[in-house]
Design a protein around this nucleic acid. Structure first.
Length: 431
DNA sequence: ATAGTCATAAACATTC
DNA sequence: AGAATGTTTATGACTA
């Protein structure tokens, strides 16, 4: 049985449009200075850092940080491609920028990459500064990273286009403002499907990770938590949703102690009845139905099928908790920052590509600029409302994270975390 | 055996 | 006109 046919109309109908694209997370800030990251992330500035400083449960350190992918090596040209969900393991603070990863594609340049086309496209898009790429750029990225395709039968490009067109994970964004830089559209990853893709990536065989290191992320998170290295976690740029996922995984693997894995969704639901979990020492009883699979279901892989995706899409829409990253929470926030033009993100377009970001007449030096044009045109009142919404969401996330952390049985280390965080804050303020 | 996933190929339309 | 891009359909291999 082939791919589900007749998907395209659905895909078109569901194409969320500019706002969503604008909300694509600003991932891959690897190698960039924190200032640059902040500048590129106006959404982070929406949170009153001053008032939030003393907030124990504040998730700013998650908000401000970028997606986990950032530090898991998709983001730098200097780094090989590995699963964003794997990393080296060790009790020491991982050096995310280190080159201790194996390099699947370089390891065997002539062998076929262990990634499906969907994942290759996903990586290519996520690697771009604005999470949008024309198909030609996708070709280039894949070619650059996987020399296999240089000698592979030419049909792979067809497959890429086929995937883009058929796979609901990918959204086409018209270059509305005068067909900038060539023909064709830009392709983005639907944020709602990002968890699926992430999950799919995680499932990919990575000898370097699985053999000697295993799944680092939960271990890493665990070690961070156990060592009360809040700063480390903060610096690690793990976003809230990912942290939740890792927490769950850690719990599942027995790294952290908890009765059962807790989906963020549950945390959000419970917090409404219990209030801030930090103020409720009682353990929330979880239901089986609220398994981790609610938000991270290995079966809900990237695929052609509309059914599983639709299910997740619905779930995603039904609750903030299912968002794949905090960025998605803020997806309605117009991007005012200038991203990528100064190279502060550590990203540079591939040498062999012919798209000149700096020549973008839209002044955003990226593709997403057109996509977010709609949102940027909204008025001041809209901004106020959005800011308010952000604060509300932030509160929700804070409480949800509080619930999670509490339930994960790590509350005991919070005292240390607090002091560590406060120390860091004080140091920063002095600077 | 069946259904789902994925890769591949091909035809065709559209756009530049 | 030709190339690039995008859509759709079909088929086969593989897997759970």
């Amino acid at each position: 049985m082939g791919p589900v046919i007749g998907m395209t109309p659905d895909k078109r109908a569901e194409t969320p449009g500019a706002e969503k694209v604008a909300g694509l997370s600003q991932i891959y800030k690897m190698g960039s200075l924190p200032e640059a990251v902040d500048a590129a992330r106006p959404k982070a500035t929406l949170v009153d850092s001053e008032s939030a400083d003393d907030e124990l449960t504040n998730l700013n350190w998650l908000h401000e940080s970028t997606n986990l992918l950032t530090n898991f090596s998709l983001g730098s040209e200097d780094l090989p491609i590995v699963s964003p969900l794997y990393d080296i393991e060790g009790d020491d603070v991982p050096s995310f920028g280190s080159s201790c990863y194996q390099n699947p594609e370089k390891k065997s340049a002539t062998s076929k990459p262990p990634y499906s086309f969907s994942l290759l496209i996903y990586m290519a898009i996520e690697h771009s500064p604005n999470k949008c790429l024309p198909v030609k750029e996708i070709y280039s990225w894949i070619l650059n990273r996987f020399p296999y395709f240089a000698t592979a039968p030419t049909g792979w490009k067809n497959s890429v286009r086929h995937n883009l067109s058929l796979n609901k994970c990918f959204q086409k964004v018209e270059r509305s403002h005068g067909k900038v830089n060539g023909k064709g559209s830009l392709w983005c990853v639907d944020p709602e499907y990002k968890p699926n893709l992430m999950q799919a990536l995680k499932k990919q065989p990575f000898p370097s990770a699985s053999k000697s290191h295993g799944s680092l992320s939960p271990h890493y998170l665990s070690s961070v938590l156990k060592q009360n290295q809040l700063r480390t976690l903060k610096d690690s740029d793990i976003d809230a949703a990912t942290a939740m996922m890792l927490l769950n995984t850690s719990i599942k693997q027995g790294i952290l102690e908890c009765e059962k894995p807790l989906p963020l969704k549950t945390a959000l639901q419970k917090k409404r009845s219990y209030g801030n979990a930090f103020n409720h020492p009682s353990v929330v009883r979880l239901q089986e139905s609220d398994s981790l699979a609610t938000s991270i279901d290995p079966k809900e892989d990237h695929n052609y099928s509309a059914s599983s995706m639709a299910a997740q899409r619905c779930a995603s829409r039904s609750s903030v908790s299912s968002l794949s990253s905090v960025d998605e929470v803020y997806e309605f926030i117009p991007k005012s920052g200038h991203v990528g033009s100064d190279g502060s993100e550590g990203f540079h377009s591939e040498e062999d590509t012919d798209v000149d970001y700096e020549d973008d007449p839209l002044g955003d030096s990226g593709y997403a600029s057109q996509a977010c044009a709609d949102t940027s045109e909204k008025g001041q009142s809209g901004k106020k409302m959005r800011k308010q919404s952000c604060q509300e969401i932030d509160e929700e996330l804070k409480e949800a994270a509080g619930s999670l952390l509490h339930l994960a049985g790590i509350r005991t280390c919070l005292g240390s975390l607090i002091s560590t965080a406060k120390t860091q804050n004080q140091k920063q303020r002095r600077k």
